[in-house]
């Protein structure tokens, strides 16, 4: 097991309120696997990534409970210095908008080389050679010319490739990708997804793939966790999840995506209502107010994640009935 997250709890502090962005989530990432994290905006999927890497804004957010074990060591207890050595070297991250995460005043090659130099004690020229090699790996045409490009001289797709090159330059064991293709066009998205899957197979890096798009999950991941209102509501292999969703939220999510197999011009099954505010404590299941399956127990007691099949867990009192529906 590469990464073991237990009861991770993160709060955001506003002027008068506390937002419970993560309400105690536990999951594992195994060596070399691709784990998808899906959910809609505000469900806590990005906060999970930032909490693991300890990149939360210091003034407004704090991880108040739980542990994150990387190779068995709790990285939440490490000093900042030790954390910096893990970040980038053994756990790397790519973001949604590559333009904001690349420094506009340095060439792409230099930024990759710098990442290499921080973690290995390679010489400048060796690091530049490595940068060129990485650009070649992510299939940027003419890497020997492109190393000298500034980020603004590249297209969105190419910048995302450069970001991936930078993230993979130190051969990390875990790559956290936060909506890496959301800002890209469909044809470019397909190229980048294909690239990430290929590279994962070649380097054996585990990938945690954060996205809102069920289609992207289906095409890239082996295992999936579904998040809603700061909690994990379902966890399963990708095949099981799409074949028999066991949480009414997962089911609702899948049905509300337009799908040609169900016929056109029909009303889509919608999830009524809106996501609950995380400022007030939630009693019972957070999905109960929107859930067609909700019964009294759902409104009183919060369901825990429990097994509903081999390697398939759901946090729902009526998961068996949901699966049958």
């Amino acid at each position: 097991m590469l990464l073991d997250v237990r009861d991770l709890e993160t709060h955001f502090y506003g002027d008068e309120s506390v937002t419970r962005a993560l309400g105690g989530i536990s999951f594992q990432v195994n060596k070399g696997e691709t784990l998808g994290v899906v959910g809609e905006s505000g469900c806590g999927k990005s906060v999970t990534a930032l909490s693991i890497l300890r990149l939360l804004p210091k003034l407004t957010a704090r991880t108040v409970g739980g542990e994150v074990r990387f190779h068995g060591r709790d990285i939440l207890a490490l000093s900042d210095r030790e954390m910096r050595q893990i970040r980038g070297d053994r756990i790397a991250m790519i973001f949604q908008e590559p333009m904001t995460s690349l420094n506009p005043v340095y060439t792409v090659g230099r930024q990759i080389a710098e990442a290499v130099q921080i973690h290995t004690k390679a010489s400048r020229s060796l690091a530049m050679a490595k940068a060129e090699e990485m650009l070649c790996l992510v299939r940027i045409a003419d890497p020997q010319l492109r190393v000298n490009n500034y980020p603004y001289e590249m297209s969105g797709g190419m910048r995302q490739r450069a970001m991936i090159a930078m993230a993979l330059a130190c051969s990390p064991e875990l790559l956290i990708a936060d909506e890496p293709t959301t800002a890209l066009d469909v044809t470019i998205q397909a190229q980048i997804l294909r690239l990430i899957v290929d590279l994962k197979e070649r380097t054996g890096t585990a990938v945690m793939f954060i996205t809102h798009d069920l289609g992207v999950v289906a095409e890239t991941c082996q295992r999936v966790i579904v998040m809603y209102a700061g909690r994990i509501v379902e966890q399963a292999s990708v095949i099981d999840l799409f074949a028999h969703p066991a949480h009414p939220y997962t089911q609702g999510l899948m049905r509300s995506v337009p799908d040609r197999r169900r016929g056109r011009q029909r009303r889509l099954p919608e999830i009524p209502g809106i996501v609950p505010s995380l400022r007030e404590p939630i009693v019972g299941c957070s999905f109960a107010p929107r859930c067609p399956f909700a019964i009294d127990i759902c409104r009183d007691k919060t369901p825990a994640l429990r097994d509903v099949g081999s390697s398939h867990a759901a946090a729902c009192w009526r998961a068996e009935e949901v699966m049958g529906a």
Binding site: L193, A218, E219, F242
Partner: peptide, 16 residues
């Protein structure tokens, strides 16, 4: 190129 929410579908063609 559009991703399809069906993990059993095999993606044969290479993206453009």
């Amino acid at each position: 190129a559009a991703p399809v929410p069906d993990p059993t579908r095999l993606r044969l063609e290479a993206p453009v």
